[in-house]
Design a protein around this nucleic acid. Sequence first.
DNA 1: TGATTTTATCGTAATATTGCAATATTAAAT
DNA 2: ATTTAATATTGCAATATTACGATAAAATCA
Lengths: 107, 107
Amino acid sequence: MGVTKAHIFSVEQNELAQAAKVLAHPARIAILEYISKQEACICNDLVDVIGLAQPTISQHLNEIKKIGLLEGTFEGKNLCYCINQNRWVELQEAFHTFFSNINRNCC
Amino acid sequence: MGVTKAHIFSVEQNELAQAAKVLAHPARIAILEYISKQEACICNDLVDVIGLAQPTISQHLNEIKKIGLLEGTFEGKNLCYCINQNRWVELQEAFHTFFSNINRNCC
DNA sequence: TGATTTTATCGTAATATTGCAATATTAAAT
DNA sequence: ATTTAATATTGCAATATTACGATAAAATCA
């Protein structure tokens, strides 16, 4: 993000931007959509499903983890990823609030 | 964005990611919040309100324009920016759909 | 134990983003 | 016609992102 002056903005503004940044890549959208469609949790079908190399998928998962959107067991073989529902709802509400607080006036 | 392989993802995934990218900077969140709070349209109070240099604000406005979120008259002096309501609602719904289509199962 | 499988990490190349000074452009005001 | 004010554009430095090959780590299997 270059040299963003995060400190001149509010915590809320930075948090929403941070969440948006995680969604700002189609691979991460695709990963979240895929995980959300599985009945059970997934392991590394992602490499095949998404079509990016394994280290790249791992990096993307890490970005998603960093804002708390993933949970599950992360040890050794046969990992299990799933979406943290509470965090999901939190972000959903943050975006909903942002989009709702809009003035209807224009020039 | 480095070397994103956009072509391996769907149009919808790319569009949502593109919209998220615009929201992925606190300055752009702040700009949109500020414009949305004004009764009338704004000109360049933004430089003072946001606290970034004029060229930087201009760049951020351009990013927001590129996804069609701003409208108004854009000529010479005394510009008038406001939010394109239709586009706003479109994005709002895109995010809403994304956040709603989530499976409740986990491991 | 040794081989295999799954995920993470490191290193690095290519590209994108952020921010600003300097400068150009545009339109109104004098 | 000049000056002034508001935006846009250019160029550049600093930093971040994306992607992948190579390799490490961790757990299971034979």
